[in-house]
């Protein structure tokens, strides 16, 4: 019996056939938060990039994380997505999913989507094809060879195109998009997987003011349906979207509250504005 299972697993690995569960398991957020980071420490050659970081994100929340360069914001995202293993601490997705026990693809599969700082769309594919590639569902060779996108998936592509406002560019090559449009397309690719938690690293860097404004609208429209964590430097942008802001400094949380509270917080002013 065991041997049979082993053979089947091996078979599926190579041939990519057989049923795999398409939906990630439900995430239990009954206690409020969708993400629990507790006492996370990451050190690089003795230097603590994260130092006993403790942070909770509520389901459906839009949270901004700010902090000076080197505060550990990107490292925090690396820990959540499984790219970096912390030295100690715990990271839970909902009540029941232990992120530290999972690999990068498993975490992505479980419903955490990440947008990196640099846009990484497929430049030689059209906008539509980029979203199609990112669609959730069977990704085996046979499924993609024999089955076109299902009607529901097509509808999802259309609705995501609308959300990211790229309907007019659907058959353009992604490489021909502006920098801002590429960032939106990448967010759209994340949305195709319908993640519960979206991590967005410096989305508006290098954008024109109009693009910044549309990005703010986009992220605001996502909150509620998804939990969104945004790392950003641009204070005007943070002000335009955030209800709650967390300030990171030297690898731990310095203060948390509304943007106004933060801007009048003496320690925050000292480390952040005194930069």
């Amino acid at each position: 019996m065991n041997a049979a299972t082993a053979i089947r697993n091996g078979w599926q690995k190579v041939f990519g056939t057989g049923a795999r569960s398409e939906r990630p398991p439900a995430i239990d957020t009954s206690h409020g938060p969708i993400l629990y980071l507790e006492d996370i420490t990451v050190s690089f050659d003795g230097f603590k990039a994260l130092n006993a970081l403790t942070l909770y994100i509520d389901a459906g929340e839009l949270r901004c994380i700010i902090g000076p360069n080197g505060a550990g914001k990107t490292t925090m995202m690396d820990v959540i997505t499984g790219k970096t293993r912390p030295d100690c601490g715990s990271a839970w997705f909902g009540q029941t999913t232990d992120l530290l026990a999972m690999t990068e693809p498993e975490i992505a599969q479980a419903g955490i989507g990440r947008k990196f700082q640099k846009p990484t769309v497929f430049e030689h594919h059209t906008v539509f094809q980029n979203l199609e590639l990112a669609a959730a569902g069977e990704k085996s060779v046979w499924a993609t060879l024999l089955k076109p996108l299902s009607a529901t998936q097509r509808e999802l592509v259309d609705s995501v195109l609308e959300t990211i406002r790229l309907q007019d560019t659907r058959s353009m090559l992604a490489g021909a998009l502006s920098h801002g449009q590429k960032q939106w397309l990448e967010i759209g690719m994340l949305l195709m997987q319908d993640p519960q938690l979206l991590l967005v690293d410096e989305p508006v860097a290098g954008m024109t003011p109009q693009e910044v404004e549309r990005t703010a609208e986009l992220l605001l429209s996502l909150a509620g349906k998804h939990s969104v964590v945004v790392v950003e430097h641009d204070m005007a942008f943070v002000r335009s979207i955030a209800k709650k802001v967390t300030v990171l400094h030297e690898g731990h949380v310095l203060a948390e509250g509304t943007i106004d509270e933060m801007q009048s917080h003496p320690r925050v002013v000292e480390v952040y504005l005194g930069e």
Partner: peptide, 17 residues
Amino acid sequence: RVIQAVRDAESRTRFIG
């Protein structure tokens, strides 16, 4: 389209599943 994505950005293709 997947194999062309592999050609252009292999690790990204792996990352999206």
